[in-house]
Design a binder for these strands. Structure first.
Lengths: 266, 266
DNA sequence: CGTATTGTTGATCTAGGTCAATGAATGTGG
DNA sequence: CCACATTCATTGACCTAGATCAACAATACG
């Protein structure tokens, strides 16, 4: 798993978030997408920064971080655990938009609107950090770097969302599941976890819903992959055994183009 | 079709873009997503604004606006015509990410990165307007409203991209095509065109690729819709006859939630 | 006006959906 | 800590939506 032992965040972050050894499945502050913002607090007078204090709060499994239609009150980062976002169709069935892993930001698409666009629910017991970005205007005029950081994060998310779009939405069940697993793997690595061995926080039903295939097909595809020695699955635990073969199946290799700068700042 | 007769843009825009009666399939400046930026030029000294002059340039059918891997040189708006963006898989087949209609912005996801993430090709003879946003840093510090506008546009695009994601990616061919047509219709209306009668700039093959179904299925589904009196298709021309019924098929109604503010600023 | 490209239609076949039964895991109260 | 319940996952049998292949029709274009 290779978790970083020390959990030192720079500048203001040290004052805000307790320093201790991170638990399994918990991301360290410097591997979080908020990190860029944390650094900015050095520039800002303490009394102002306190308004934007990051507050950590627990969200028990099954409870929501925010719901569709609620007034926008800020952006969240996953500290530990996992979250899914979904829309509810008029027929009351849910359509999963995305899964969020430790270190990833949640609710960005609601910035500059008045209400959240989707519902975010914890897949397991989760810790989130909160940045009340609705008060952003206070900072914008005086601290342009804050806005630049935000622009950066938004642009990166837009690019990622496009990747997501290709990932699912088309082709065979094999391609979809392979691409999904590789995507998860890559994201775990990016936020400081091991990339071959991980735990699926979501149900088979959720994976199926997200990929647009049936639960049974997810199950059967896992089995087929296992038979081909591409991976091992036992319940929620997955170990990728043959990443190149999975990439071959996924058709599209998720290594970003050189110089694309997706990893640049965090 | 109800095209607006006058093409008056406010402030600086008047100095930059010629005022004349817009052609069919050409968007007026005040219905363009760039409009928010245009207004900002009032705040900025002329000599600075000239660096960021909008330049209109023609892109003949089949030629590219930008290509995957090219250095980022700015954001484009479609003035007239249409564009598709796609990625090329290692197997040299293309995967269409999105279509862009008059008034819509192109290349936003490459902001703050060094290279474009996808290739953009004109579906027909197209006019684009260009904003060299790579020189954005020049403006950022002194004109925070510029950045705010950019944040707004990025957040709205992120939200739209999520809508796109639900739209396709799942369910039956009927649902996908219905949702696709309603989405096009809504976008035409938003940018000042009629919403029931429009021309499909893209090939059946492109629609199929985008929706993740076969060309033949697109054709057959059109025919079935026509038999059910939901629409008329003759070649590239589409007339929606029964929008409520199509919404029913599409499962998800694309009217944004009250107060979501997706239409607020433009 | 003929050639190339794009679109339609028909016939066949298969990936994956649906239904239903069973099995494993997880949670709960005694 | 165990018995039972509930939720979640797997497996099998069957059947339809839509892919694929192929021929043909309609446009677009020089």
């Amino acid at each position: 798993m290779s978790l970083t032992e020390k959990s030192v965040a720079s500048g203001m972050a040290e004052r805000i978030i307790a320093i201790r050894t991170p638990r399994r499945n918990e991301v360290t502050c410097e591997r979080c997408e908020f990190h860029g913002f944390l650094q900015l607090f050095n520039e800002i007078p303490l009394e102002l920064a306190q308004i934007f204090l990051f507050r950590q709060r627990p969200v028990p499994k099954g409870e929501s971080v925010f719901r569709e239609g609620q007034p926008f009150h800020g952006v969240y980062a996953i500290k530990e655990g996992g979250v899914k976002t979904y829309l509810t169709t008029p027929q009351q069935s849910e359509r999963i938009l995305s899964f969020y892993l430790p270190g990833e930001l949640l609710g960005l698409e609601a910035i500059r609107t008045t209400h959240y666009q989707s519902t975010a629910v914890a897949l397991e017991n989760t810790q989130v950090c909160w940045l009340p970005l609705n008060q952003l205007d206070l900072l914008g005029d005086r601290f342009p770097h804050f806005q630049e950081q935000l622009i950066h994060v938004l642009a990166v998310h837009l690019a990622k969302q496009q990747q997501q779009f290709i990932l699912s939405a088309r082709q065979s069940a094999d391609e979809r599941l392979a691409a999904f697993l590789l995507n998860l793997s890559e994201r775990y690595v990016r936020h400081g976890f091991g990339g071959e061995l991980f735990r699926l926080a979501m149900l088979r039903q959720d994976i199926a819903n997200f990929l647009g295939i049936s639960m049974e097909t997810v199950s059967r595809t896992f089995k087929r992959f296992q038979a081909k020695k591409l991976l091992n699955v036992t319940g929620k635990h997955v170990r990728l055994l043959d990443v190149p073969a999975l990439q071959e199946i996924a058709q599209y290799v998720f290594t970003p183009p050189p110089g694309a700068g997706l990893h640049s700042t965090f």
